[in-house]
Amino acid sequence: MARMKFLCDAERCIECNGCVTACKSEHDIPWGVNRRRVVTLNDGVPGEKSISVACMHCSDAPCMAVCPVDCFYQTSEGIVLHDKDLCIGCGYCFYACPFGAPQFPQDGAFGLRGKMDKCTFCAGGPEADNSEAEYKKYGRNRLAEGKLPACAEMCSTKALLGGDADVISDIYRNRVMKRGKGSEVWGWGTAYGKPDAKPATPPGAKS
């Protein structure tokens, strides 16, 4: 099996917010925290496009790089998770993330920033699988039940695909071939790297 990825097909997303609702409901997410949200580009302009955005579980995750307490880890399936017991709620990951994925619940009477919360690809966290502690801290662990993330499985138009990168890429390729347009996948280059990307200035050259 390759690594787990999300893929949002902007040609299909109808901005129904079913993914957002599914995520909120599945993990009992508190008020003010949105692990997933739908963003509309060129809203109101003919040809507007909507995309469902959450943590993309980047190959080279910037949140992992900037965390001062190193509370992030990547599973063997490429899912980026974190230990809430270590998180100090500093917010560095929020500034580093190109997708705005890290969320911070208000904690205490003075609106202090609580521990970071983000999409877990429905894979829970570093607690015993499907335990009470895991559900309270990270939400439900659907992956340990052999299921895919709730947002992708609930998507009515199947715009949001989640799962093994090889499988979802094949599904998307097949779609593009059939409809003959919309081959651009939003966020994939940022999250998983561009295979043909060359540096702007060759190493050693004057900039």
Partner: peptide
Amino acid sequence: LYKQGEYQGKLDSQPWSNAQF
């Protein structure tokens, strides 16, 4: 005992290491 750049938290189990699988 903190080591810079290394994950310091609890170890996670594999998703197939449970009663179901």
